[in-house]
C-alpha cells in the first residue's frame, strides 16, 4: 500500500533532529516564562479609575474604535406596548436615597456662557412626547422589555437653543445630591431614541425609577440611564462617571 504521508516524510540526521528539538523546547519554555511574566506585570500595574492601567488603555482604545463608526441612524429595536414588563426591575438607588421635593425640583442646565436654565417638569412636558418600548440592557447581563416616555434629548436641546452645547463632545448628568453621575458622548446623547423621561408604563415615574425626570438612553447599558436628573452640563472633557470610576468601561455603548 502506498504511504499517504510520503510527501511529509524525510530522513534527517539524528543529531540535527536532537538539536532542533532542544531549540524548539527552549523557545517553548521561554515563551511560557514570558507569558507568565506578562500576566504578572499587568496585574502589578497601578489601577486607573479602578481598572488595571493597561486594561484601562485598551478600554479607551475600544471606545475610540467603536465610537468612530457609531451610526445614529441605527435604531434600537422597539416592541409593541403589550410586550412591556409590568414589574420593572430596580437595580440601583445611588443618588436617589433621600426624598425629592416636587415643588422645588428643577432641571438645572448649565450653559456654555455660564448661565443656568432652571426648568420645571411641566415645562418639559410641553415638549413633543415620545413613547418607547425597548429591551433595557444591564451591564450585569440581564435585560427587560420596558415602556418609557419623555422628550427626546435632541428635541429638548433644540427647543432651548443649546446649539453651542451640542457642539461639545460630552454631556454630563448628575443627581441633585451628586451621589450619582454619568458622562455621555454627544452622538449617543443626540441619538433619536435618547429621552428625558418622565413616564413609565404610561404613568409618572415612580420615585425608585427616578421621579421626576430620568435619562433613558437605549444605545447604552443601564448604568448610564441616570435617575432623578438634577444637573445637566456640557464639556469637551469626559465628565465624571460613577461606574467608570469603579473599574467599568466609560463608553458602555451599544
Amino acid at each position: 500500500m502506498k504511504n499517504p504521508n510520503s510527501k511529509l516524510e524525510e530522513f534527517v540526521d539524528a543529531k540535527s533532529i536532537k538539536r532542533k528539538s532542544v531549540v524548539a523546547f527552549c523557545i517553548f519554555f521561554l515563551m511560557l516564562v514570558v507569558g507568565f511574566a506578562t500576566w504578572k506585570w499587568i496585574n502589578n500595574q497601578p489601577t486607573d479609575q479602578g481598572a488595571l492601567r493597561p486594561l484601562r488603555k485598551v478600554l479607551d482604545v475600544n471606545e475610540k474604535f467603536f465610537s468612530a463608526f457609531f451610526d445614529s441612524t441605527k435604531l434600537v429595536k422597539e416592541y409593541p406596548l403589550s410586550a412591556a414588563a409590568k414589574k420593572v426591575r430596580v437595580n440601583g438607588i445611588e443618588g436617589i436615597r433621600d426624598n425629592v421635593d416636587e415643588d422645588t425640583w428643577r432641571l438645572n442646565v448649565i450653559k456654555d456662557n455660564g448661565d443656568t436654565l432652571k426648568i420645571t417638569l411641566d415645562e418639559i412636558k410641553l415638549l413633543p412626547k415620545k413613547n418607547i418600548v425597548f429591551d433595557f440592557k444591564c451591564i450585569e447581563g440581564w435585560s427587560q422589555v420596558t415602556h418609557w416616555a419623555g422628550v427626546p434629548l435632541k428635541e429638548f436641546m433644540k427647543h432651548y437653543h443649546l446649539k453651542n452645547e451640542a457642539m461639545k463632545k460630552y454631556v454630563g448628568l448628575s443627581t441633585p445630591d451628586h451621589g450619582y453621575y454619568v458622562g455621555i458622548d454627544m452622538p449617543s446623547a443626540l441619538h433619536p431614541q435618547t429621552l428625558l423621561c418622565y413616564e413609565m408604563n404610561g404613568k409618572a415615574l415612580p420615585k425608585i425609577q427616578g421621579y421626576p425626570l430620568r435619562l433613558i438612553i437605549p444605545v447604552k447599558y443601564g448604568v448610564k440611564h441616570l435617575k432623578r436628573i438634577g444637573t445637566m452640563y456640557f464639556s469637551d472633557k469626559k465628565p465624571a462617571d460613577y461606574w467608570a470610576e469603579r473599574g467599568y468601561d466609560y463608553y458602555t455603548g451599544h
Partner: peptide, 19 residues
Amino acid sequence: MKKKILHKHPLVIRWFHWL
C-alpha cells in the same frame, strides 16, 4: 545515523495553537 521524521505542524500553526 539518519532517522525518519514526519513534518506535521508548520511553525506558524504551532504559534497560533500555543498562543
